[in-house]
């Protein structure tokens, strides 16, 4: 690993100031991506800015009106253990327990998972499905970006020079809503998604009133498929509706072949994972 300087600012303005003065600096939260990338030479840094000392980035708050705020540096294990998240956002608690293993979850943050912008990122399809937004701070002030617009290419995101992710905001789900994320991995843990599907549905009187579906590892960025969710709205809750939505998700996917799976296999899995995730989400919605 090449030598770098390290600093841990205590406030957001300090961090932004450092980023403005040293645009090549790298932000460190959990480090489970960054340190691996620095060690392998895939990324370089002259300065590493540890953002974990900034209180706002460690916030994990729920307000029934404002929704859930996940500070950009909050590690997964805090989400998994959080009682409100377990009860109101069970899919999120699950995802946080599936990213890496126990030790990785002791460090890795959802914010980092988002900013790393891997096509296969586990948390992003679910965040998209939940209608989450990213709160960004920079020299020009603050702005909010929908999660589906955050990633721009493999490893690239919306953050402009001098900007950093402050938090992820997830709106409180409407009554009778349910969400789920499912991924396919050949092992049972410690694996990268071959395909992942994040879904969220709202049901009233046996009919879908809202639905959002997104996929991972099937495109250069996590893929929001509005048409798949739209196809559910107005439909009665029935296997045919789920299957139809899954088929739309599948046709939107444009996966590649690599060491984790062939394009044909990924394409096949899109429909399976989407349908299965919808089945779980429907059950949760009906229980809420």
């Amino acid at each position: 690993m090449k030598a770098f300087d390290y600093t841990a600012p205590a406030t957001l303005p300090e961090a932004v100031g450092l980023l403005v003065s040293q645009p090549s600096a790298r932000l460190l939260a959990g480090g489970t991506d960054l340190i691996v990338q620095l060690r392998s030479g895939r990324k370089e840094a002259d300065l590493v800015i540890d953002i974990k000392k900034i209180p706002e980035l460690n916030a994990l708050d729920f307000d029934p009106i404002a929704g859930l705020t996940i500070g950009a540096a909050v590690p997964c294990y805090r989400l998994t253990a959080h009682l409100v998240i377990q009860s109101h956002f069970p899919a999120l608690a699950e995802v946080a327990s599936w990213i890496g293993g126990t030790q990785i979850q002791g460090r890795a943050s959802i914010g980092g998972n988002l900013c790393n912008a891997a096509p296969s990122a586990d948390s992003i399809p679910l965040l998209i499905a939940l209608g989450a937004t990213a709160l960004i701070a920079g020299p020009g002030g603050r702005r909010t970006v929908a999660i589906e617009d955050f990633c721009t290419a493999p490893g690239r995101n919306q953050l402009a020079s001098g900007e950093l992710l402050v938090s992820i905001q997830i709106p409180t789900p409407a009554p009778h809503s349910g969400a789920a994320y499912l991924r396919f991995i050949p092992r049972n843990e410690m694996d990268i998604a071959v395909v992942g599907a994040g879904v969220a549905v709202t049901i009233a009187d046996g009919v879908f009133t809202a639905a959002r579906i997104a996929l991972s590892a099937v495109a250069p960025t996590p893929l929001f498929v509005p048409a798949a969710g739209a196809a559910l709205v107005g439909q009665p809750v029935a296997p045919a509706a789920l299957e139809a939505a899954a088929q739309i998700a599948q046709s939107a996917a444009a996966p590649i072949s690599d060491m984790r799976g062939t394009a044909a296999y990924r394409k096949h899995l899109c429909a399976v994972m989407t349908r299965r995730a919808l089945e779980i989400a429907v059950t949760r919605a009906q229980e809420n």
């Binding site: 049972n188 410690m190 694996d191 060491m259 984790r260």
Partner: peptide
């Protein structure tokens, strides 16, 4: 060993080599 056509091993980490974990 997942080799590309040029003979590079693309999965030379425990993450992608996929040995059984305790859960497997």
């Amino acid at each position: 060993y997942f080799m590309d056509a040029s003979g590079d091993m693309r999965n030379s980490s425990y993450l992608d080599y996929r040995m059984p974990t305790a859960l497997d």
